[in-house]
Amino acid sequence: MDVKKLYDDYEAYIIEMRRWFHRHPELSLKEQNTSRKIQEELQGMGIPFEVLAPNCGVAATIKGGKEGKTIALRADIDALPVKEETGLEFTSENEGVMHACGHDAHIAMMLGAAKVLNEVKEELAGTVICVFQVAEETGFGYKEVLDYFDSIGGVDSVIGLHIWSTLPEGEILLIPNSVFAGGVGYDLTVKGEGGHGGRPDLVKDPIKAACEMVLKFASIPSNFYDVLDHSVVNVGRIEAGTIGNVFPSEAKLYGGFRWYKPGGDKVILEKMHQIARGVCAMYGVDYELVINGGVPPVSNNAELISRAKGLVKDVDGLELAKQTDPICAGDNFGYILEKYKGFYGVLGAEKAGDTVYPQHHCKFDLDEKAFRKGSEFMARFAIDFLNAE
């Protein structure tokens, strides 16, 4: 099978698809038109698919000419509530919504891989499932993917690629264990007793306690948690008071924390509670700490990463990234990898010579030369995984 020749033929298609999806972004759980376009493309290729209830994710099935293992490829499809300021000719037509994280490229690369794999399916010993997942940005979508895998008896492996604007184009980050961090958000309310700004001795001031917690939470990664695990405990928003000469009765902190090693979240959370209890005892106030959702670390299977590294040389212009550190971002693909072995690669698409903007920025953009490489890498991995002795 001449995979390179097929990608020579289909590279323009992949770029065209990326531009279409970039022009028509949709927010999480509202990806109806995105899903409809994916379905139309799959129908045109003659690939059967299912829509994943209760939302509009899509799972396409490419059955090989021989029986064998099953591998799933996963791409997320939602956009962000960001007003685009790139000035691209294919800029977003949906005001206030933008593919500012590269999911438009993920869809296009997956469609390209589906197109090529469908062309060579008679030479495959097994089945490829191409999954287009909704609502990654808001933490949803992965459950219906797992439900679908369960309904078909599971898969032997599942892989994905996340494109990255600050990694050099043509490089791919393939590391074992955690490549993305686990992350959760939290809301913390400090409850005191307010009063006149001139009599701090007669109140139980929640502001001083909250400020104390902000500083002490920031010290958790270096003083109270494993120094060999990269971690962050942050506060991004503080609310308290209405006027300068009144002590309020409540202060609120909004933040999050990130970690990489299994179980790190439990240790960090307990240290937060320990600090909050101590600070509250000192200031005579109470607190309530509420956790908001979150994702586990995205942990790569070491054996499959080793196999993947061996295939990088087969893709023209692709090389292993010089960076070897994980990335402090989150992705609910981690939940899928907790149940099924696989990996998440990070594909560089930095626009050399231009100002580089990170994911989620209103001027975020990508080098289109990377898309063919990422798509080809996924297709080659699927072929190798299924046809290996």
Rank of each mutant, 00 (worst) to 15 (best):
M1V: 14
V3L: 05
V3C: 01
D9V: 15
I14V: 11
E16F: 04
S28L: 05
Q32H: 12
R36Q: 12
K37Q: 15
L42C: 02
E50K: 12
C56A: 13
G57L: 07
V58Q: 05
A59K: 09
A59M: 10
A59D: 05
A60E: 03
T61Q: 01
T70G: 02
A72P: 07
A75E: 04
L80A: 01
T86S: 06
V97L: 02
V97T: 04
M98F: 06
C101K: 04
H106G: 00
L111D: 02
V116P: 03
V116T: 09
V116S: 09
N118A: 12
V131N: 07
F132D: 02
T138Q: 06
G139Q: 11
D147L: 08
V155A: 05
I159L: 08
I159T: 01
G160A: 09
I163T: 10
S165T: 15
L167Q: 05
G182C: 11
G182H: 03
D201A: 15
L202Y: 09
K204F: 13
V214N: 08
V214Q: 07
P221Y: 09
N223W: 15
D229A: 03
P248F: 08
S249I: 11
W259I: 10
I275V: 11
G278F: 08
C280R: 02
V298K: 00
V298L: 07
N300S: 02
R307W: 09
V312E: 01
D316M: 07
G317V: 00
K322H: 13
P326Q: 05
C328E: 15
G330M: 03
N332A: 06
Y335L: 06
L337Y: 06
E350Y: 09
E350V: 07
Q359M: 13
D365H: 11
K369P: 04
F371M: 13
G374A: 08
R380P: 13
L386S: 01
